[in-house]
Write a protein that binds this DNA or RNA. Structure first.
Length: 413
RNA sequence: UGUUGUCGCGAG
């Protein structure tokens, strides 16, 4: 019971509650089991609370709870996701030192870490090692390698990898197909991607919503709006396709079509989602049509879709870029009043606007407010500030910001 | 009850 509760707390992002529960369990007579510890370790590490995670790990061992294979695998994944390749591999050696044999999940996690770091060569070395170790690669292994290849622009090798997977009697699933279709499209081979889509439809693999999203985006971006429409009709019955189409259109510069669809959906009372509405607002803002952007903001709320931090960030950014910094600052206040917490992107948009307007002192104040709220700046934030100060001739201040950036452990990119 | 792969929203 406690363990299940712990898991749901972790998964819903209520990490502090999960930690409290863990404390209570440790103090009480019902000690947490390895599952509870693994769940909390994984989630803490995943959201970057590295130090707390190591404390919990030490406490777990001290309480006599022994990490199992799943614990190690979870650590590899969560540490690897933070970009710490060496840290992930350290767990891999540690687990072997205490006698655990890596399984397919371990190898897949490591291969994924390497692919994410664009080290496909090393990923293939792990693949070989896995095979030598008698561990049988599965569809996930192959898909990860496939993705690694497409991501690094090696589309031909990716196609070969797909064939190899089939030869290895590994049946490609919808994710494998989606990965390759997306890769083909990104390398400019839209037609080949479409052919693969038709092939999968004809065979045992049913396309899913992700497949349709990938293709609709591709068609819109290549000015093949009619093809995107055709696809959306094919998916009729699924109300979400309309939102997805609206989003695709907005992001590809077909703002008018997107707006028409939006208005249509509002009138018909069809379900809208906030991400699609945000795409449209952003598209309209980029097209310098702020009136329409605000209209969508109003209409979506009437239709029962609440604005999020992203919605406000788009609007704040658009105000800044139209030299309406005062309004942008006001809007930041409004969102806070509504209980919507600005995040690092929101603050950075405003800071950048202030810097570009030459209000460097104001920018510093906003940066201070952000920091006081416990939000750290990232590479984008610092680069805005440094550029701003540099342009204003405040070289010393620029250098101070640079030092603050290094002190905060933020790497320039 | 915990761990691995694909897609759409915002900042320099």
């Amino acid at each position: 019971t406690y363990t299940a509760l712990m898991d749901s707390l972790c998964k819903t992002g209520r990490d502090d509650d999960a930690l409290k529960l863990l404390d209570a369990m440790e103090d009480g007579d019902c000690s947490p089991d390895v599952v509870a510890y693994t769940s909390i370790l994984y989630n803490l590490q995943k959201i970057g609370r590295k130090d707390e995670a190591s404390i919990i790990l030490a406490r777990m061992k001290q309480k006599g709870c022994v990490p199992d294979l799943v614990t190690f695998n979870a650590l590899i994944t969560s540490i690897g996701r933070s970009g710490d390749v060496d840290g992930a591999f350290k767990i891999y050696t540690d687990m072997q030192d205490v006698g655990f044999k890596p399984d397919v999940v371990t190898y897949n996690a490591l291969i994924e870490v390497l692919c994410k770091a664009d080290d496909v060569e090393e990923a293939f070395n792990m693949f070989q090692k896995m095979v030598d170790d008698g561990c049988i690669p599965d569809v996930i292994t192959h898909t990860e390698l496939l993705k690694g290849l497409t991501k690094t622009g090696r589309i031909d090798e990716a196609c070969r990898q797909f064939r190899k997977m089939v030869q290895a009697h590994c049946v490609p699933d919808v994710i494998a197909y989606n990965t390759l279709i997306h890769g083909l499209i990104k390398s400019g081979q839209v037609e080949d991607g479409y052919q693969l889509f038709k092939h999968m439809k004809g065979k045992a693999c049913k396309p899913d919503l992700v497949t349709y999203k990938i293709l609709m985006d591709a068609f819109c971006e290549n000015n093949l709006v009619h093809m995107a429409l055709e696809l959306s009709e094919e998916m009729e019955g699924d109300m979400v396709v309309n939102s997805l189409l609206l989003s695709s259109l907005a992001r590809s510069g077909h703002v008018d079509d997107s707006y028409k669809l939006f208005s249509d959906m509002v009138i018909k009372g069809w379900k809208l989602d906030v991400k699609s509405c945000n795409s449209l607002i952003s598209g309209l803002a980029n097209a310098r049509n702020l009136d329409a952007a605000w209209q969508v903001h109003a209409d979506m709320q009437k239709a029962g879709v609440s604005a999020t931090v992203v919605t406000y960030t788009i609007l704040i950014d658009s105000l800044c870029k139209s030299d309406r910094i005062e309004d942008a600052t006001k809007l930041l206040g409004e969102m806070k009043e509504k209980g919507i917490e600005p995040d690092v992107v929101t603050y950075t948009a405003l800071i950048d606007g202030l810097c570009k307007a030459g209000s460097l002192h104001e920018a510093q104040l906003v940066f201070g407010e952000m920091t006081r709220r416990g939000i750290s700046g990232n590479a984008v934030t610092y680069s805005s500030l440094i550029r701003g100060f540099g342009k204003g001739g405040l070289v010393d201040e620029a250098e101070q910001v640079y030092e603050a950036m290094q002190a905060s452990g933020c790497k320039p990119d």
